[in-house]
Amino acid sequence: MKSEFFTVLRSPVFWGAIILLALGPFVLPSYYLHIATLTLIYIALASSWNIVGGIGGQISLAHSLFVGTGAVLSSALLLKLGINMWLGMVIAALVSGLMGAIISFIDFRFRLGHLSFALITLAFAEMGEIIVIGTEALGGASGLFLPKDKGDLLAFQFGSGAGIFWVMLTLAVGAILINLAVLNLPLGFYLRTIRDNEAAAQAIGVNILRNKTIAMVISAMFTSVIGTAYARYLTFVDPYQLASPVLTVEIVLIATVGGLGKAFGPALGAVLLIPLGEILRGKLGGSLPGLHYFVYGAVVIAVILATPRGLLPALQSRLASWRGSAKSEAKKPSIAAPGA
């Protein structure tokens, strides 16, 4: 089983696809480059969330807290105290990790059920947004403006367009690789055991607090780093966008539609939904306010009704049954995957 991680690492298709993607900035016009960059950001965010929400099965709605910390705290440290944004990124990641650990501890100490956990993390996220908006040192309701990106690497500036695109590509690939690694490490097996039956996991000696906390801290810290890069990309750090629970809802939507708990599921969801949302906004946004979100909502409902187990599992079982029927023509009747 351990080899799946290395199979992907050694796979020429994987690296070929990344190199092909890395050439994107040279061929894409700026509008499409923006959509591609945004898609990569959401691949990274949804994949990081997947460690807790998909593999670990804990519906955390607190992830806007970590994106917000990564974006707002590092920007505020730079603008108010002149602290280099690289250091700010590290500080924000540590703070996010600490918050993640505290949330995990509360979850364990008070033995929250799924729904209570989701709602308490949602309450934390709502409180986080209210605190950021009410605190002048963090930019308050009007947000923060980062200095123009001049491509100075030491100041956390990557140059507009191509530079930041490569950063996001690195983060997206990193998030997927972390997912693969977690899935193939003992941690991933523990997490899935806990997800499937917590009492049984505990009975056979899986340390629940330790494994859940590790997963949450990894996810929170990586999400925070993505948040810092996202702030750099947007230049304007808007608390209503980056610290809002609506962002978490988007992330969870992408991961769920793509396929929970699969390494490439959230990426597939982002690749489908983000360009769709952006193109709808571009085509319909000007005509009638609300129309593009209306269509987006309709597509989301249609996709969920068509593939209630997620896109990636549906694709895989379709592929498996197609392969199976091709093979079995000579031997035995095909064994279709359940639900296919």
Partner: peptide, 17 residues
């Protein structure tokens, strides 16, 4: 459970917009 919740969120988008 999440799928059903996501469906109602899609519905929320639909109604709101």
């Amino acid at each position: 459970l999440l799928m059903v919740i996501q469906l109602t969120l899609g519905l929320a988008l639909l109604v709101q917009n």
